[in-house]
Design a protein around this nucleic acid. Structure first.
Lengths: 217, 217
DNA sequence: ACCTGAACACCGTTCAAGT
DNA sequence: ACCTGAACACCGTTCAAGT
């Protein structure tokens, strides 16, 4: 079937997928491949364009500059990570969702994602919030919301208020990030990272009960 | 006084500091300035050489490639951070050194260093341990040794074994790193970061006692 | 709206050559 | 041992021009 074009030109090259509506998507896909294979520093707009069969100026229609491409990659990364955590947590949720199982699954999923996508997690963490880029900011917030919901469910029966939940969520996220960094940089093994995160979850949950109230808001 | 040259050429330009023995040091110094002002991505060997008044090929005598410069910067960063932590911890040590004060000071110093040198901490964290670069690896190990000594002192009276100390040290370091990343990326304020680290130290110390023994080695 | 292609100013890296 | 300077291959970015 003939695809309707949005630009008024009824060109006849649609069937050959001649990069009309999907160049942006193709660039992102190829960029993610480069990211996995060679890291963020090797990412070149010109090479991406070359491999996609378009001129080196073409990407500019979709990404004003290199930063915009990296931001788009980071944004997708946040959603993918949130999805991975949701998926990893599902079994524990079906089992009732209370206790440390939920948070261990979430933290473990974070570490696995970081291990599997070291360069991507790198640009996600490095992504500054200055100069809004609302879409990116929102994606990061979405991940944090996912984590907040999990912590709320896991500690639901213990009477924590919203501020305490928020603090524990940030702490758990930060620890997952820090342990992932240790693993990705090769300073500890993956298995050791998982053990550390298991310890962290256990300590957080136990400690949160023990010191609650003495924590400043 | 005439400085003795090591290359056999008794050139007369020593007094004008014509980059004979100190080009490497000057490049590092200028690189750190660029790092502070404009970030790691803006770091260019050619620009450094230009500003130092040497040809663009000159840096190669001291840094084989750009990676080597970044590694050298990261290496110095590890020592500077370890020094900063030592300095920040001294008052607490003079007060006896037990309890959470020591670890709070250490974690706070980490966060302050990261806040003051965001680009530098970035290349430190990103520095892979693969392809040894023994000097860099050793610098990272030195920081970890510093942290280990502090944790040992802080928890000395509680009968933890070496493996437990090592695990808590990694956890604390990872958390300090993760919280610093949250602050540097602008997702939380510095003050909130310090509060989070205070909470983390308290929870770690309390939790370490509570769950000890149930932790797998 | 999206893409082309020339132009510009910058890189990192290599390497023969100088001192 | 350390530095010069040409050479090479690659960038990001801009912008008039095409469809």
């Amino acid at each position: 079937v003939a695809r309707s074009t949005q630009n008024g030109y009824s060109s006849g090259v649609d069937k050959k997928t001649f990069h009309h509506g999907n160049l942006r998507a193709e660039l992102l896909e190829r960029a993610e491949a480069v990211l996995r294979a060679r890291g963020a520093e090797e990412l070149s707009l010109r090479e991406l364009a070359r491999e996609a069969g378009v001129s080196h100026g073409a990407p500019r229609s979709h990404f004003p500059d290199r930063r915009a491409l990296l931001d788009a990659l980071a944004e997708r990364g946040f959603y993918r990570l949130a999805d991975a955590i949701d998926a990893a947590v599902r079994p524990a949720l079906d089992d009732g969702g209370a206790g440390t199982g939920l948070l261990r699954a979430a933290a473990g999923a974070y570490l696995d994602f970081a291990t599997g996508n070291p360069a991507l997690i790198g640009i996600m963490v490095a992504s500054k919030t200055e100069e809004p880029s609302i879409a990116l900011q929102y994606a990061g917030t979405h991940l944090l919301s996912t984590m907040t919901a999990l912590v709320t469910t896991a500690l639901g029966k213990q009477g924590h208020d919203a501020a305490q939940i928020a603090r524990l969520t940030l702490l758990l996220s930060a620890t997952a990030q820090g342990v992932s960094a240790l693993v990705v940089s090769g300073r500890i093994e993956v298995a050791q990272g998982h053990l550390l995160l298991d310890d962290a979850v256990r300590i957080f949950v136990a400690g949160a009960v023990a010191v609650d109230g003495s924590v400043a808001g």
